[in-house]
Structures are given as structure tokens and as C-alpha cells.
Deep mutational scan, measured.
Amino acid sequence: MGFKLLSKLLVYLTASIMAIASPLAFSVDSSGEYPTVSEIPVGEVRLYQIADGVWSHIATQSFDGAVYPSNGLIVRDGDELLLIDTAWGAKNTAALLAEIEKQIGLPVTRAVSTHFHDDRVGGVDVLRAAGVATYASPSTRRLAEVEGNEIPTHSLEGLSSSGDAVRFGPVELFYPGAAHSTDNLIVYVPSASVLYGGCAIYELSRTSAGNVADADLAEWPTSIERIQQHYPEAQFVIPGHGLPGGLDLLKHTTNVVKAHTNRSVVE
């Protein structure tokens, strides 16, 4: 069995187990497998329904001669939608809004960016022009300005110390501490036991640490421990890039980060 097929099978099995364990909360999309990078042309966006009122959005972007996937989250909030992270750029984010209108038909009224990198804030200006209120932590807003990236308009308070959590509509926002970046936030959907790890969490097929220019490698494993301790009931975990899975993604990420750190020390 090929690795790609095995990865998709694991996603399907995880979703099936969740649907059985929580039949009222989960209505997993039966329309197909989780979209992969090879299936999404740059400039297009796919939506994948995880649970009743919960979707991931998947886009792709060219970077350094390669094409990478990027995940975000959409959560229903009454007759409105909360968006977590842009679709990595203005063109993708405009396509995301169009796809949401086509498939869901509810307005996106608020959006949260989970850290300051372009795959999370690139497209904020498109959201703002569409009347979406954009939010991020003060740290993310400051770092985005320093980096020359787009800056969300509103500040999220109460997320300055490791372990801080605040309720934001249908989700809980959690600051686990520094990891992929010093400002990275985690998003949890309690009604569906869905954990969105953003770039602080890796997919299972990833074996290298990737972009760690703004990471705190020493603190990252401790931050992941905080996530595990705060959300032990999480059933569906979405990484910032690639295929979702279960809580095993947290341990896998820790292993990859520690291996990278150990290699760096040896070198």
C-alpha cells in the first residue's frame, strides 16, 4: 500500500471513529477524501466538511520552486461564519470567499490569524475590503508590521502568557507558548472536538522541520505538551499544512522538532 493511500485511509478511519463516538456532533463529509496538494491548482481553494458547521479550507501556493498546501478553518456561528487564517495570499483568499459563498452561503463576518507569517495573514486586506472584521493577538499584529505583512485590524486580548485561553464565538483560542513562531495560536472547536494546530503542528508525513527561522526550538516541545494537557479530548487535529489526523500529530511534531534540534547540535 502506497504512503499517500495509507495517509488518506488514516484520515478516513479517524473521521469514521469520530462519527461513531459522537453521532450528534459529527456529520463528516462523505463526498470524498481530504484534498491534497496535487489536486488543488494554485489560485483555487477546496472546502472539506469535518463536522456539522465545521470545515477546513485548503489552498496551495508556490514557494521556492515548489507547491505547498495550506489549511485553515471555518466555523459556523449562528447565521454567520468565523474564518481562521487566510488562504495564503490575496488571490487565494478572494477564491476562498467565493467558494464559501458557493458552498455554504453564509457571510464571513470575523477572521482570526493564528500567527504573523504570510500563509496566515496574506489576504487580510481582501477580507477587510469584503467587510470582514480581522483579528490577531497584539504580538501577531506587531510582528506582521515588522515583517511588512498585512496586519489584522483588531487585537485579541488575554493571550499574552503561555497557557492563556479565551473564548471567541464558537471557538476557544489558546496560546501554548512559542513553537513554530513566538505568537502562534491554537484554535479548538469544543462542539466538535476539532483542534486546529496551525503551523505549530505537523502532518504525519512530514519528517523535516522546514521553516524554523522564527521558531523557538527549545520551547516548542513544552508548548505541545500544554496543548495535549489542555485538549486531551480532541479527536480531529488539523495541521497548518497537509493531512489531518488525531492527537498523534502532536507527538510526531515533537519528535521531528527534537530530531532537528539534535542534528543542529551535532553539526
Results as ranks from 00 to 15, higher is better:
residue 247 L to S: 08
residue 52 D to A: 08
residue 7 S to W: 08
residue 201 I to C: 02
residue 205 S to L: 12
residue 26 F to Y: 08
residue 71 N to I: 03
residue 25 A to P: 11
residue 54 V to I: 11
residue 87 A to Q: 00
residue 173 L to I: 15
residue 128 R to A: 13
residue 119 D to I: 01
residue 219 E to A: 10
residue 233 E to I: 13
residue 25 A to M: 13
residue 95 A to M: 15
residue 10 L to Q: 12
residue 84 I to Q: 00
residue 183 D to S: 01
residue 230 H to T: 08
residue 6 L to S: 06
residue 52 D to K: 08
residue 256 V to R: 05
residue 29 D to S: 09
residue 228 Q to K: 15
residue 151 I to Y: 04
residue 134 T to W: 03
residue 30 S to M: 15
residue 80 E to V: 14
residue 266 V to K: 13
residue 139 S to L: 10
residue 127 L to I: 06
residue 13 L to H: 13
residue 255 N to W: 10
residue 260 H to S: 10
residue 72 G to Y: 03
residue 35 P to F: 09
residue 60 T to D: 05
residue 63 F to H: 14
residue 165 A to S: 11
residue 3 F to A: 06
residue 164 D to K: 06
residue 189 V to S: 04
residue 222 T to P: 08
residue 43 G to W: 07
residue 247 L to T: 06
residue 103 Q to S: 14
residue 63 F to M: 05
residue 159 L to N: 01
residue 2 G to Y: 11
residue 2 G to T: 09
residue 9 L to V: 10
residue 137 S to W: 08
residue 163 G to M: 06
residue 125 D to E: 11
residue 128 R to G: 08
residue 6 L to P: 07
residue 238 I to L: 07
residue 96 L to W: 00
residue 108 V to H: 02
residue 7 S to H: 11
residue 149 N to S: 09
residue 71 N to H: 02
residue 10 L to A: 08
residue 31 S to Q: 15
residue 161 S to F: 15
residue 67 V to M: 11
residue 107 P to N: 15
residue 27 S to Q: 12
residue 215 A to C: 04
residue 14 T to W: 04
residue 103 Q to T: 11
residue 10 L to P: 05
residue 131 G to N: 14
residue 50 I to Q: 08
residue 240 G to H: 04
residue 169 G to V: 03
residue 176 P to D: 02
residue 248 D to P: 06
residue 4 K to W: 09
residue 263 R to N: 13
residue 23 P to Q: 07
residue 266 V to R: 13
residue 11 V to F: 10
residue 220 W to K: 00
residue 37 V to W: 08
residue 181 S to A: 09
residue 114 T to K: 01
residue 28 V to M: 06
residue 16 S to V: 09
residue 81 L to S: 04
residue 21 A to D: 12
residue 101 E to K: 11
residue 22 S to F: 15
residue 169 G to S: 04
residue 247 L to R: 12
residue 60 T to V: 09
residue 171 V to C: 03
residue 129 A to R: 10
residue 166 V to S: 08
residue 238 I to S: 01
residue 43 G to D: 13
residue 121 V to C: 06
residue 47 L to R: 02
residue 54 V to N: 01
residue 217 L to T: 07
residue 222 T to L: 14
residue 13 L to E: 07
residue 119 D to Y: 01
residue 117 H to I: 00
residue 17 I to H: 15
residue 165 A to D: 10
residue 193 S to C: 03
residue 103 Q to N: 13
residue 19 A to Q: 14
residue 201 I to H: 03
residue 83 L to Q: 04
residue 131 G to W: 04
residue 20 I to A: 13
residue 220 W to L: 01
residue 88 W to I: 00
residue 214 D to M: 06
residue 114 T to A: 02
residue 216 D to P: 04
residue 174 F to D: 00
residue 219 E to S: 15
residue 109 T to H: 11
residue 24 L to E: 12
residue 126 V to W: 06
residue 22 S to C: 14
residue 84 I to C: 02
residue 90 A to Y: 07
residue 232 P to M: 12
residue 236 F to W: 13
residue 89 G to W: 02
residue 29 D to I: 10
residue 252 H to V: 04
residue 105 G to Q: 15
residue 36 T to K: 12
residue 55 W to G: 01
residue 199 C to T: 02
residue 99 E to G: 13
residue 171 V to M: 05
residue 86 T to E: 01
residue 249 L to H: 00
residue 57 H to Q: 12
residue 106 L to S: 14
residue 113 S to I: 15
residue 139 S to I: 15
residue 17 I to G: 05
residue 184 N to P: 02
residue 203 E to A: 08
residue 110 R to C: 04
residue 51 A to C: 07
residue 189 V to N: 00
residue 178 A to N: 15
residue 180 H to D: 00
residue 243 L to S: 07
residue 57 H to K: 00
residue 179 A to H: 01
residue 215 A to N: 05
residue 150 E to N: 08
residue 37 V to N: 07
residue 194 V to R: 01
residue 146 V to E: 09
residue 180 H to R: 02
residue 147 E to Y: 13
residue 227 I to Y: 00
residue 259 A to W: 11
residue 49 Q to V: 12
residue 93 T to D: 00
residue 127 L to M: 07
residue 236 F to S: 13
residue 93 T to K: 00
residue 102 K to G: 13
residue 37 V to S: 09
residue 80 E to D: 13
residue 149 N to A: 10
residue 166 V to E: 11
residue 13 L to F: 06
residue 256 V to M: 07
residue 197 G to I: 00
residue 174 F to I: 04
residue 97 L to P: 03
residue 40 I to P: 15
